[in-house]
Every structure is written in C-alpha cells, then in structure tokens.
Design a protein around this nucleic acid. Structure first.
Lengths: 331, 331
DNA sequence: CTGTTAGCGCGTTCAT
DNA sequence: ATGAACGCGCTAACAG
C-alpha cells in the first residue's frame, strides 16, 4: 500500500493525502479526518526510505560504543543504551547500534554520516583526544559525546565527574588512615580513565604518597588477578579503589580467597546497574554512585536538541554521590 | 559527494560510474579501476537511503527484544545482541534495536515491515503462541525466532532445549536425595518459561512428587524474595532450581543470609555471560550451561540465510551442558 | 484549500 | 563499453 494507492482510493491527489497525514494546516479538517480514517483502516504505513530520501532524514540515531577485540558489551554500556532507548523510542527515533574498535572508529563515523545512515551520532566513552569529535564538528553533523574528552573543539557532552569521584574515593581511604592504597583503573585509551587517574593522583599528592595505579580492562578476572597479585606482595595494600564495579567484584573475590575480607577496605565506582547489586558482594564496599541510565537520558535529550540546526553547545557534568559503608579498614 | 559529482569529476556518465562501483561485468577493467581509485580518494559513499529506495533494501535487520515496564535489558538479552552483532556487522547489516512490550509487539512488527525499516526481523523470546510469527510468515517477510514457541506456523527458529535442561536440573537434585525442591522460573508469557516448566513437571512426575514452581521476572530481588519466603516456611525446600542466574544470585543471597549455605543445593541455568561468573556466587551451584552468544550467532546466520527468497525453513535446538559442582545437599 | 510538477540519489532498463 | 532516461515513494515548491 503506497501513497498513490491510498490517494486513488480516496479520490484525492497524492499531495493532499500526504499533507493530511503530515498535519499540514492548509487541508480542511474533514478531509484530514477522512484521509486519516481510511489510512488507518487499510493500514497504510509510509515507506520510511522514500520519506527519508525526500526529507533528508532517516529517523535513526547512531550510538557508537567501543568494541575491543577481547571484550563484550559490558553492563555499564548496556545500561547506557537502555537510558538512550527510553528517551529516543518515544521520540520516534530508532537506534542504530554501532560497535567499532578504536582504530576504525573514525572511518565508521565517516561512513555513517556520508551514507546518511543516521541523523545524529552519540559517541560513548571517547578517547582522551578523539578524532571523531573534530570530524563531526567540522562536518557540522549533530552529535553528543558521553564522556569529557580533551579534544580541543567545542562540542556538546555529558559526563559524570570522574575526576572528582576518584579523588573523593581515594581521599576517603586516606582519611581513614590507610597509607597503602592501590587503584585498579580502566584502559588509558579512554578519557574517563584519564580523568579518574587525575583525581587519584591529586589525592595521592595531597597526602604526599606515591600513587599506585593499574590500568586494565574492567572485568571480573582482571580485578581478581591484579588484586591477588598485589595482596601477595611483601607489604600489600590495605585498601583498594576500583574504577568499576566489575573489577571490584573480581577484586572482592581475591580478597575473600585470601581470607582478608575483614582487613581490606574497598571503594568502587557504581553505575547503578540493577542486576549488579553491591549487596551481593563481599567485602562490603563504599562507593561513588551515579545511575548511568540517567546520564544516558540526558545524552539522548541533548542529542535531540542538537538536531535543531542552530542549537547551542552545552556541557553537563554530574557529581556522583559518595555512599559510605561501614567497613573494615585500619581505623 | 554524490554519484553525479563523482561522474563529473571522472568525465564519465552517472551510469558508468554506478556500474563500475557495483562490479557490473560490462565496464572495462581500467575504467573500473580508475573509478574505484578516485571514489576511494575523494571518499565517496553511496547514500544508503537513495540506494535503499532504488534497490528496495535498507541494509538493516531489526532485533525485537521484549520490554516490560518494570524491566531493563537484562544481561542475557545483551549477550544475545552481542552475538547478533558479531555476525551481522561483518555482513554489512546494521542492527535496529527495537524494544516492544507484549501487547504492542504485533503493531511494532507491522510498522517495521510496512515502513520497510528493516530487511528482516529477529524475534527474541517469543510468547508461547506469538502473533508475530503468523503475521510475518503470511507477509512472506524474512524472520527468525530465538525461542521455540507453539505457534502453529512453520518457521525458522533457534533455541536452547530448555525443557531438557530444566528436566535434568530437577532430576539431578532428586537423584541426590532431595525431596523438597522449589523452582524459581520466568514469566509464563514467554515460551521458554513454559518449556522449562514442562521439563520440571516431568521430573516431578517421574519422582512422584507434587511440583513447586514459582513464576516471576528474572532478577536479583525476585530471586531473593521468593527464596527467602520459601525458606521461612514450616518445612522449607532443601534445594532450588533457578531458570536464570540472575534469580539464582538473589536466591543465593537469601540462602547466605539465613546461614544455610551449607545445607541448600542449587541448580541454575547459565547463559555464559562473562561478567556474571558463577565463581563469585555462594553457595556453589550446579548449572546447565549454554553460551547464549553462540546461539545468537546461529540466529544471525539463519537470518541472513532467510533473506534469500527461496530459503528453506530450518529449526535448531541446542542442548546445554550440565556442569555438576560438588556442593552441599542431603547426601 | 487542492492539484501539478519537480526533485531527493541511486539502480537499471533500453538504446547506442 | 557507454550514456540517456525512467522509476523507486515521498515531500515541497509552485500554481490555481
């Protein structure tokens, strides 16, 4: 069923039918009513491609999430996607899920905008300096970044204040008398990892101690292995900071295995993933917490806003709550 | 940069350039080479929409996943999506992520095919009798279902043998002397839940005991609450079967809280989600295991196959492994 | 208020 | 081997 068929059935011209369906003001109310009624009855659906070609929009937004060869869509990324979907679906925008590894990300990005596969792009977890940002800004293509990068181009982004969160996490432990603290953080190829490291370093500087930071993929076994290794050292840490609950879970396992769960303090970043409840984890952990789903909603709203031709650039930084848990430690 | 621009740049006609890029046999080799070289240099990308309009294909496959009001994309669904993406991305097919609740799913489905938003549809977790199956089959639209439903229409599907897995899980416990077994299973609106219940009932029948099955959303707190409630009964179960690791995690927490982790046996279904490692869970659990990511890959391959006009209908059922863990129990 | 006409960018017959 | 012309289904100027 195409527009032409519908027009023939109604005895109207193609144009009038189109206008009636798209709520143009110049069609009479009863014509519009009649058109819509019949369209509804015969189940007419406009061909989205033809419409896209005519209007120059496709009704979809691409979400670029990182793909590393050994990795998977982690729970945080998923929660992010869920938040995006919650805003975009009611807005009638489809989501184009695009995974791309670091070195092909610019190419993928180009591909999306030149083939007009999407009307806007959301970049999730940018690199410290991300080539896509300049490219998209130059191309004047609507985009929003989830993550504060150092890319020297004005652009709209939303992020959690990772630097502040990491600083407070570390300081929290220092203030409780810990002197040997280890941080298990994410890969340096991501901006947020850099931000967290800056916060952690500041805390170490302030308490005049040399930093101990490890960077690796966030997942159970990396958290486990690094923690185990560190705890087996001659003078092991008495406290750990984890950049992700995933690593913290693995780290917690290592701590339990060594029977140290009463003597090691832990602070972790928590993104509020419902099924990764810290309640299940031992040892108990203090956390900096911000629901990534809410951040994602803001990203989506900003993206819709940026699709307006003369939208201004905005940035948003959200501070996580510190949820202090009575736990073991040196004090 | 459009085809016309490229043609002008090359001093060739639009047609020839198009044919050269699409590997038509009638263009001379050096013309083709020259065209491709220049296209590559100037970064020409065909407009996917215009191409779609001309060819009648859009280069995207819709994945319909259930959305329940209180719920989120759970880890299993995500792993499923990852598997889909692993196959579809290299095949040059985009993924259109579509969440829809049960009662609007048929409408959403219609919408997708009538507006030609996608070239094929993947249905994830069908209802026991799913209206979309008949609709898509009637419309002769390519689709594959992840999940064995009772819909009386021949169609291509891929699934894990849930009935067998659930039967073996339950029988495993009976054989170890348990007589009071409770099953925490998924919502009956999904076909897989029905399948699992059939398997569980068969085990109960075989051992001539009345079944105890609870149906609820799979998540931490439902697992927790049902388990807690049951364990506080007058004569509580000595063993639990969980349809999902998510519920099992919550259930395990309830068991630990009551200090019964040495006396309760647990069997769970495990979909091989990397970050939900059962290694972190107490009490230890026996599991029926099958990587949902692998199943998803099969689904994606089947979908690509079904996009061929005269593809035959195929069905695949995969048996999970039973991974027996030495654990507490009555024996 | 309604209809006619011209694109949107590409693939593809039909000529040459 | 190459090009001109048409159509995919729809929207948007431009008439009337």
């Amino acid at each position: 069923m195409k527009l032409k068929d519908l027009a023939r059935e109604l005895g109207l011209s193609l144009t009038t039918v189109s206008r009636a369906l798209n709520n143009y003001p110049e069609v009479s109310d009863d014509t519009r009513a009649r058109v819509k009624r019949v369209a509804d009855r015969v189940g007419y659906q406009p061909n989205i491609i033809a419409r896209g070609l005519a209007v120059g929009e496709i009704g979809a937004i691409a979400v670029m999430v990182p793909k590393e060869s050994t990795s998977y869509l982690d729970p945080d990324t998923i929660e992010f996607l869920v938040g995006i979907a919650e805003v975009l679906a009611p807005a009638g925008q489809d989501i184009l899920l695009v995974q791309s590894s670091r070195d092909e990300s610019l190419e993928t990005c180009r591909n999306i905008i030149e083939s007009r596969r999407a009307d806007a792009i959301i970049i999730c977890y940018p690199a410290p300096v991300d080539s896509r940002v300049r490219f998209l800004a130059d191309a004047n293509f609507p985009f929003v970044v989830y993550g504060k990068s150092r890319t020297p181009v004005a652009h709209t982004w939303v992020d959690i204040d990772h630097r502040d969160a990491a600083f407070r996490s570390t300081a929290f432990l220092f203030e409780r008398g810990h002197e040997k603290i280890a941080a298990i953080e994410g890969p340096v190829q991501f901006a947020f990892a850099e931000e967290r490291m800056a916060g952690i370093r500041r805390a170490f500087d302030q308490f005049e101690l040399p930093p101990c930071i490890i960077n690796d993929t966030f997942c159970d076994y990396t958290g486990y292995e690094h923690t185990l290794r560190l705890l087996r050292q001659a003078s092991p840490p008495t406290a750990f900071v984890y950049g992700s609950l995933l690593s913290a879970i693995g780290g917690g396992r290592a701590i339990r295995e060594l029977g140290k769960q009463e003597r090691i303090a832990v602070v972790t970043q928590d993104n509020g993933v419902p099924y990764l409840s810290p309640k299940n984890i031992l040892p108990r952990m203090t956390m900096t917490s911000f629901p990534i789903r809410e951040a994602a909603k803001r990203v989506a709203q900003q993206t819709i806003r940026m699709m307006d031709v003369n939208a201004a650039i905005e940035t948003e930084s959200w501070k996580p709550r510190l949820i202090s848990i009575a736990q073991s430690g040196r004090d």
